[in-house]
C-alpha cells in the first residue's frame, strides 16, 4: 500500500526541550491518522514540519511521495492545513477569505468565486458569507478555517487540533464535516488531545508523549492492550467487601482491586456481559447488598494512563522525557 505520509526519525529540539525525539509515522493513502497526546507532546511541531513551516534537526519526511525537506515548494500544492497552526483573516468576510485562498492556489477569479460559494454552502456558512469573520462564532470560524484548507481539494490534509476550544455542539458539527471529508477519500493527519475525537475519526491512532510515539494501533487494539473491560461492584457494608472480592476473583480469574473507602471492588474481565451476569447472580446467592454494578469499556484515557503512567491532562511539556516511562514501569 502506498503511504501518503511517511516520517522517519524526526527530531526537533528547542534548546533543552525535545519537542520531537525521533518520531516514525506511516499513513496509508485514504486513511486517517490521529496524533493523540497532551499539550506539549510534540503534535503541532510534527504538523509544522510536515506542512513545510518548520525544519527538523534530523529525520526524513515524505508527503504525497515528495521529500518535504528537499522540495517543500512541490509539497505545498498538495496539502491543506487547518486548525491551531493556521488561520483566516478576521477582518475579511467568509467569502473574501475563501476567494483569496482560491486565488493564492492559482485558481482564476471565476473558479475561485464559484469554489468559495460551493464551500460556504457545504459548511453551512452561506448566510454568513458576507459578514466579517470577527463576528463568527468559534464553530463557524473553525469551519471556515477548514474550508480554506480544502479550496483545491488537496490529497493530504493536516488538521491541527480542529476542535480545541469548541463547545460540544460545535465539536459534533465539526466531526461530521471531517467524517465526510474522510469518506470522500482524503488522507488526513489529525492532532488531538481528545481521546474521544481520535476514537471517532481515526483509522489509526499514534499516542504521542514527550516527542515520541509510545503506542500505535486502532482504537480497539490500543484498548485491548490494557485488557478488555473492567467490572466494578459497590457493596453496602464493609463486612461484605471480602465476599465481593472473593466472587469477583473467582469470576474473572484475577485479583480484584479493593477500595475500602468507597467499598468498591474492581477487576478486569475478558468475558464482558457474561461475567457481569454471573457476578450479579453469585452476589445475590451470597446475599450481598449491591449498591452499584457496572461494566466499564476502557476509554483511551485508560490507555493513556496505562501507557504513560500519567493522565493525559497532567502532562507537563517541561518534564524531561523518560520520567513518565519510569513511573509506569
Amino acid at each position: 500500500m502506498t503511504h501518503a505520509i511517511e516520517v522517519e526519525g524526526l527530531v526537533k529540539h528547542y534548546g533543552e526541550v525535545k519537542a520531537l525525539d525521533g518520531i516514525d509515522l506511516a499513513v496509508p493513502e485514504g486513511t486517517v491518522l490521529a496524533l493523540l497526546g497532551p499539550n506539549g507532546a510534540g503534535k503541532t511541531t510534527a504538523v509544522r514540519i510536515l506542512t513545510t513551516l518548520l525544519r527538523p534537526d534530523a529525520g526524513r519526511a515524505m508527503v504525497a511521495g515528495i521529500d518535504v525537506l528537499a522540495e517543500p515548494a512541490r509539497v505545498r500544492p498538495l496539502i491543506g492545513l487547518s486548525g491551531q497552526s493556521a488561520a483566516v483573516d478576521e477582518r475579511l468576510t467568509g467569502r473574501e477569505n475563501l476567494v483569496m485562498f482560491g486565488r493564492l492556489y492559482r485558481l482564476d477569479k471565476a473558479t475561485a468565486t464559484g469554489r468559495a460559494a460551493e464551500l460556504l454552502e457545504r459548511f453551512g456558512l452561506s448566510d454568513a458569507a458576507t459578514r466579517v469573520v470577527q463576528t463568527y462564532s468559534g464553530g463557524m470560524r473553525r469551519r471556515l478555517d477548514l474550508a480554506a484548507a480544502l479550496v483545491v481539494s488537496p490529497p493530504v490534509i493536516f488538521l491541527d487540533e480542529p476542535t480545541t476550544g469548541l463547545d460540544p455542539r460545535a465539536r459534533a458539527d465539526m466531526w461530521e464535516v471531517i467524517a465526510e471529508l474522510v469518506a470522500a477519500g482524503s488522507t488526513v493527519l489529525l492532532t488531538t488531545q481528545y481521546l474521544e475525537e481520535a476514537d471517532r475519526l481515526a483509522d489509526t491512532i499514534a499516542v504521542v508523549d514527550h516527542g515520541r510515539v509510545i503506542a500505535e494501533g486502532t482504537a480497539d487494539e490500543l484498548k485491548a492492550r490494557i485488557g478488555g473491560e473492567t467490572l466494578e461492584v459497590v457493596v453496602a457494608t464493609d463486612d461484605e467487601l471480602p465476599v465481593a472480592q472473593k466472587v469477583l476473583a473467582s469470576v474473572s480469574g484475577s485479583e480484584p482491586v479493593v477500595d475500602r473507602h468507597t467499598r468498591r471492588v474492581q477487576v478486569p474481565v475478558g468475558t464482558g456481559v457474561a461475567a457481569l451476569v454471573e457476578t450479579v447472580r453469585r452476589l445475590a446467592d451470597e446475599q450481598v447488598t449491591v449498591l452499584d454494578v457496572a461494566l466499564h469499556r476502557p476509554t483511551l484515557d485508560d490507555v493513556f494512563l496505562t501507557l504513560t503512567g500519567h493522565a493525559a491532562e497532567d502532562a507537563d511539556s517541561s518534564q524531561p522525557a523518560g520520567t513518565a516511562a519510569e513511573v509506569s514501569s
Binding site: L53, A73, R76, S85, A86, A87, V88, F101, L104, A148
Partner: peptide, 11 residues
C-alpha cells in the same frame, strides 16, 4: 494570529 503560517503553507 497564525495567518503567516497559513500563507507559508500555501504554494
Amino acid at each position: 494570529k497564525g495567518l503567516v503560517d497559513r500563507f507559508r503553507s500555501l504554494p
